[in-house]
Design a protein around this nucleic acid. Structure first.
Lengths: 144, 144
DNA sequence: CTTTGCCTTTGAGCGCACTCGAAGGCATAC
DNA sequence: GTATGCCTTCGAGTGCGCTCAAAGGCAAAG
């Protein structure tokens, strides 16, 4: 392995799914990254500290987020938003580092997570039904 | 107010939405209530302690859950499952106790909650897309 | 009568995911 | 220069929602 680390190319399909803006600057400050992802600067530093992220510094020692970093942040926040615990995300990212032979484990992990998401979707539909019912009872307009 | 408290009739439409089994026993032990709702006995006691629930005791001093209690538990668990904080649920239940004149506040509260649920549904769809994408990448069958 | 097992109460403890504070560095404005 | 404001690190603190432990009561089984 030479000094400039060999990086996998960014997965353009995934990048598209993550819905980052087309006019994304090459480098973003932590404030900009925070603004764009909806995570606080505190949380971004925290994620880095616990090893979810690996962010370069500029000349002044400030964090500088590139497209790859932003993509990872959004990816992580999607998993978090769907209830994947941080420990599981860490584990998944370690599997990625370990190489292609961990693909079956990653698959299993993601299939399990999909099941969880679908359970959550069902639960939310039940909650929505109850909430909408209460809204009609209280005289509001429930169905949009 | 006389000794046998005057209770509102149970809202049959709501009860139906809550999907309690048709053959619900008149009285359930905490273990049965736990089994049926998916909440632990610990959690049921906790909810009671913080004032979300008000449960009768049998001759032995054991908790005895009737249909009304079960309906409330499921209602609360639906709200919790959709991310309503316990404090907000408490507040809502207090508004109910205060009487009909709090209906507008309850309406506002539920409308806010519906917005939250819909935001969660959108977030979950995004997470599902990413998860399904990873599943296809790893060679699994993503779309069911 | 004793064992077993579920129940009671109360207070304390825990895990997670942040969230904040203190002390200090860099850089642009005045 | 110095003030302003965003940035740094590191350790510690917070809030929520449970979760558990201890000490003891009730009751059916053996």
């Amino acid at each position: 392995m030479n000094a400039t680390e060999v990086l996998e190319p960014i997965d353009r399909d995934l990048l598209c799914l993550l819905e980052l803006p087309a006019d994304l600057p090459e480098q973003l400050s932590i404030a900009e990254a925070s603004e764009l992802t909806g995570l606080t600067a505190h949380t971004l530093r925290y994620y880095e500290r616990i090893g979810l992220l690996d962010v370069r510094r500029d000349a002044a020692g400030y964090r500088s987020y590139d497209e790859r970093a932003m993509a990872r942040i959004v990816f992580i926040s999607r998993l978090r938003a769907s209830g994947m615990p941080i420990g599981t995300i860490s584990h998944y990212l370690e599997l990625v580092l370990e190489g292609d032979h961990t693909a079956p484990q990653r698959l299993a992990l993601m299939q399990e997570h999909r099941d969880r998401i679908q359970r959550q979707l069902r639960d939310l539909q039940l909650a929505l039904a109850v909430t909408d019912y209460k809204i009609t009872v209280y005289g509001g307009t429930a169905a949009p």
